[in-house]
Design a protein around this nucleic acid. Structure first.
Length: 323
RNA sequence: GGACCGGUAGCUCAGUCGGUAGAGCAUCGGACUGAAAAUCCGAGUGUCGGUGGUUCAAUUCCACCCUGGUCCA
């Protein structure tokens, strides 16, 4: 039993979130440099090798010598998901904290951050073959057929899942098929109640019009910097357009352009629009997390003192930090 | 200068035999437990080009004007 007056400390981590293009990477690199910390990526697309320009992966130069983890950890045709992220990130955090250095988690993938900080229920992992068969059935029988099957096998889940939400219908069916238990039960039992870390969540945001302008400019820059060549190279290396990361924003539009489905200007316009919509979904997600403390670009000076205070009381960290 | 066709939501358009209007996309809001840059759900945001006229009532009919396009001079 742990002493209630002196409970064992959970590892502390700083998490930086926010919509795409708001400047998370730069802030993280600045903080890590200031506090002697290391960065762990929490972006679902930056984990893929060979996908650099379109994912806005920080370049070696931009990293300024700060160790970055979970960038380039899998090939584009390898399976990667929230559970794998949480496991790998957990290992990296343990390593970094073991050496007494601050950790800065940076990324815009809300589910990955939730999986890391609150865990996922124990359940059967993704079964590629089973999912392929479900997708085939959606093509032939329509998503309604799968939804009806879910209504039979897990009525509670069917009640909570939209009838056309194929991703969640498939996952719910997968769980009941492979485990014999319903996803509803597993979710209720787990309830996101894991608390492996003590986290300081910092949210970066800015005026919407300004962010949208930045996003448009950044997409344009990606094209100017060689996104088309990057995608051409991926295809030439045998990474098919049907792979999960090849469907990411920027990549699918470039594939359409290379196929001759549209011109480059149309591909860019669609990429910009989809990125803006993505940023909006991220806002929705992170706004819902009441632990996030928000900062705009003119408030960045307030962040280091917060981090300093957060880690100061941590016995394992910042022991050599100047007063 | 004349004829014809258009002007309705941010865009592309539909519609009202006279009772102040609706689709797609965009936009906005939301959901999210091994696909999450994914996958879904919800909401119409409007001087119906302008000014007059007819009418109980005009975005709709009439006149003129403005404006875009095509054709004829």
């Amino acid at each position: 039993m742990s002493d209630l007056n002196n409970p064992p400390q959970r590892p502390r981590i700083v998490i930086i979130v926010g919509p795409t293009g708001v400047g998370k990477s730069a802030v993280a690199i600045e903080l890590a440099g200031q506090f002697g910390g290391e960065i762990v990526n929490a972006d679902a697309m930056q984990v893929y090798r060979r996908m650099d320009i379109g994912t806005a992966k920080p370049t070696i130069g931009e990293r300024r010598g700060i160790p970055h983890h979970l960038l380039d950890v899998v090939d584009p045709d390898e399976e990667f998901n929230a559970a794998r992220f949480a496991a790998l990130a957990g290992e990296k955090i343990a390593e970094i904290r073991g050496s007494g250095r601050p950790v800065f988690i940076v990324g815009g993938t809300g589910l990955y951050i939730k999986a890391l900080t609150q865990g996922l229920f124990e359940g059967p992992p993704a079964d590629a073959e089973l999912r392929r068969r479900y997708r085939e059935r959606i093509d032939t029988e329509g998503v309604e057929a799968l939804y009806r099957e879910l209504q039979e096998k897990d009525p509670a889940a069917a009640a909570r899942i939209q009838p056309r939400d194929q991703v969640r219908i498939i996952r719910a069916l997968e769980i009941v098929t492979l485990s014999g238990e319903t996803i509803t039960l597993k979710q209720a039992e787990h309830g996101f109640r894991d608390e492996p870390y003590e986290a300081l969540k910092i949210g970066l945001t800015m005026d919407r019009t300004m962010l949208y302008e930045r996003i448009d400019a950044r997409c344009k820059r990606m094209v100017d910097d060689g996104l088309v060549d990057e995608v051409r190279g991926l295809l030439a290396a045998g990474y098919d357009a049907s792979l999960k990361p090849m469907g990411a924003i920027g990549y699918r539009q470039t594939v359409a352009y290379l196929r001759g489905d549209c011109d480059l200007a149309a591909a860019l316009a669609d990429m910009q629009q989809e990125t803006r919509r993505y940023a909006k979904r991220q806002w929705t997600w992170f706004r819902g997390d009441k632990e996030v403390r928000w900062f705009t670009p003119d408030q960045l000076d307030a962040i280091p003192p917060l981090v300093e205070a957060f880690y100061r009381s941590d016995s394992e960290c910042l022991s050599s930090e100047k007063p």
